[in-house]
Amino acid sequence: MTDQLVIGGHPFNSRFILGSGKFSLEIVKAVIENGGAEIVTLALRRANLGGEENILDYIPLNVTLLPNTSGARTAEEAVKIARLAREINCGNFVKVEVIRDSKYLFPDNYETIKATEILAKDGFVVLPYMYPDLNVARDLVSAGAAAVMPLAAPIGSNKGLSTRDFIEILVNEIAVPIIVDAGIGRPSQACEAMEMGVDAVMCNTAVATAKNIPLMARAFGQAIESGRNAYLAGLGRVLTEAEASSPLTGFLED
């Protein structure tokens, strides 16, 4: 059975999207390989072409790059950054990130929709980072998003699925892949998200701040795979419903 994640027509075998930029560049390759990640995000603002410590020099070529527009405060700035990413051969994928709050780093859903529309028309495979709101998710899909990336909890908070109920609604209602982004702190939380039916999990801080980073990447990769299998196996019913071994109402006679 093939169970692939398809984003904008591109199939992937792994459902672990790895964030880079918070740990040492020399181990980027090992971390990717350990986690089995096929998609790696990078902040374009970190790309130091031809210069010192350029992250692009450290990411293996067989990996799909997902440059993000971090640093953008408006749709217009996000569009400019995405186009710069394409110019330096980062490919067509872009994670739209529009943030104008330096404290909580919450995405600005309104500007994100605008940027998504422009970039999707421009041929990008757009994965917008968003606050999990059903109406916004629908608008993003209409605007051409190839997937949506709702936040689980504030960036870097490692709090797990704080927005669980809202993400679950997106899982039920939205046709494009749902990729949980930001806030996942432990492999068990990534697993929980996958069990719930999200299509992929993106993780950065939780891996980057582990003592053994490659090993933590492996743990996440396995947890995500495990959660996916559990979802496919139909675990949800067991978890949420009591099931007596004989019918509770079996005593009724007439």
């Binding site: 040492s24 560049l25 374009l44 603002r45 410590e53 640093g71 953008a72 950054i81 710069l84």
Partner: peptide
Amino acid sequence: VHQMILNRGLQPVYRDYIRV
């Protein structure tokens, strides 16, 4: 300083900004 940062298990970052 670059080497010292690496020795401390940290990552020297030269570029973290795009002028837009």
